[in-house]
């Protein structure tokens, strides 16, 4: 048995995707782990920002929400929503932002639903709604998406399109009037998915140790290209040590 859990692997897989010098837009939960881990592992010069207004936060302790006052720790400046979202689309800083998002449903073009399951007017399940997700997905050049890998979550068509991915294909965003690029990766509890440079459709980039490409497909409503798949390198001892001892020693997000 490997001595790490799925959340640890997800956080490490996401941290590896963050490039040094990037500005990381953080949501609530595992994306904070990834952003903090990246700063300590692969991207020491990355910058963490929050829609609530903390810019270049040092994050001493894991915040329980983006509204948690802990996001302000060691920040370069403290503002509000208007300033923070401006920074995400401003021509100087906007192009360096990588957004980390999550959702209830995702389709093959990386469009996200965090609003309802069922019809919008008569929802079967109501979720929180966009928050800043639609803003980030609209503005920034790159997004990384965290998902639980289940058939009802990787769907042929999202019940409500809250946050734009590649919309209906390579020209979708441009046609809609969106600048910037769409999602670059999906990190689930089973796999890392990429998006094809030409078709902008999701493909299997890597599957987690202990699973198989077919097992990943079995957890999806739509099918994806498996030909480029490889097994993901497990987290190293050094990565796990940082995650457990520096990033989330209380295991608030890493879990038991």
């Amino acid at each position: 048995m490997p001595d790490y859990n799925a959340r640890e692997l997800m956080a490490v897989a996401a941290a590896r995707k963050i490039n040094d010098g990037e500005i990381v837009f953080c949501g609530t939960g595992i994306s904070m782990l990834a952003a903090m881990a990246a700063k300590h592992i692969s991207a020491p010069n990355s910058i963490i920002i929050f829609e609530t207004g903390a810019i270049d936060s040092q994050l001493e302790e894991i915040p329980m929400a983006v509204g948690d006052p802990r996001v302000m720790y060691g920040a370069s400046s403290n503002t509000g929503l208007a300033d923070s979202f401006a920074l995400m689309q401003n021509r100087t800083t906007g192009r360096h932002v990588v957004g980390i998002l999550g959702a209830a449903q995702i389709d093959k073009f990386g469009n996200l639903n965090s609003t309802v399951v069922g019809d919008y007017a008569h929802p079967k399940v109501r979720f929180s709604g966009s928050g800043g997700a639609a803003d980030v997905a609209s503005f920034v050049d790159r997004t990384i998406i965290f998902m639980q890998h289940e058939r009802r979550k990787f769907v042929s068509k999202v019940d409500y399109l809250t946050s734009p991915g590649w919309l209906d294909g390579p020209a979708g965003r441009r046609r809609a009037g969106l600048t910037g690029s769409g999602p670059s990766a999906v990190i689930s509890n089973l796999a890392v998915m990429g998006f094809d440079a030409d078709s902008r459709e999701m493909f299997l980039e890597a599957y987690f140790p202990g699973t198989t490409p077919q097992a990943v497909l079995d957890h999806m409503e739509f099918s994806v290209d498996l030909s480029r798949a490889r097994e993901l390198e497990p987290p190293t001892a050094a990565e796990l040590k940082i995650l457990r001892e520096i990033v989330d020693p209380q295991r608030l997000i890493l879990g038991g």
Partner: peptide, 13 residues
């Protein structure tokens, strides 16, 4: 530019 192309634009409550 926020939410262009999404159901936030298309669906009204």
């Amino acid at each position: 530019r926020s939410a262009l192309g999404t159901d936030i634009i298309r669906r009204w409550g």
